[in-house]
């Protein structure tokens, strides 16, 4: 009985968070709604009985991913606002196209949802009596049968995060002459320097943080 109640609570929170995420106008609000939705999904993992997955969801999504996204929102917000202003003031045909696009997206999503629900309900799943999976059984299968994929996934994460650091890094002092030549036409040199300095502080720390969380 209490399980049913908890499931519906978590489900309502997740759906509310998801809708708020999509409908929010400011990116910061969007990230806050994301935190609600992803935490509710962690609660759903707990109510399924897989406590390790719930804890990992809270660590990775509630902690690392949300903080990282917040940093990027704050680093890029100025450009985003300018872009929004430009778009809203400029082209009339683009703004006339937006409701059509929204309507089409809504129809696609609803049709997909109906199809998925019909398939789910009409398929006779061979369910057994659910028994919660302990962390021990997950660790057992993760470190025996899926040992190699586990290592490969860790390697892939390392490579991706090193790639992220390389992509977002400030240019080398040796290359800076070329770089400033390349962007000499733009006048925002001062602000660009500020964001670049903040951003190199940010990335290695987050990489280390995600490595610890995983």
């Amino acid at each position: 009985m209490i399980q049913t109640f908890l499931f519906y609570c978590y489900a309502a929170l997740a759906v509310i968070g998801a809708i708020g995420l999509v409908r929010a106008h400011k990116l910061l609000h969007s990230v806050a709604w994301t935190l609600l939705a992803l935490s509710a999904v962690a609660g759903l993992y707990f109510s399924l009985g897989s406590e390790f997955l719930g804890a990992m969801q809270l660590f990775v999504y509630g902690g690392a991913v949300t903080i990282l996204t917040l940093f990027v929102v704050m680093l890029t917000r100025q450009g985003a606002q300018e872009q929004e202003k430009e778009d809203s003031s400029a082209s009339a045909p683009a703004s006339a196209r937006v409701p059509v696009k929204r309507l089409a997206a809504l129809v696609i999503s609803l049709v997909l949802f109906c199809v998925l629900t019909i398939v789910f309900v009409s398929t006779p799943w061979e369910t057994v009596v659910p028994s919660p999976q302990t962390s021990a059984s997950l660790a057992e299968i993760l470190f025996s049968r899926y040992m190699l994929p586990f290592e490969i996934v860790g390697l892939a994460l390392t490579i991706a995060l090193i790639g992220a650091i390389v992509l977002a890094r400030e240019d080398d002092p040796g290359d800076s002459a070329d770089a400033t030549d390349g962007v000499a036409g733009t006048d925002d040199g001062g602000t660009a320097d500020g964001t670049v300095a903040a951003d190199t502080d940010d990335d290695p720390g987050d990489a280390a943080e995600e490595g610890n969380a995983l």
């Binding site: 969801q57 990775v60 990282l68 680093l75 860790g154 892939a156 992220a164 992509l167 977002a168 995600e210």
Partner: peptide
Amino acid sequence: VFLIVMAAAEIGLALALIILLN
């Protein structure tokens, strides 16, 4: 577990790309 790890890698790369574009 595998999917969460790959999603973390994906979001790290995507955010780096966004910073770069910006």
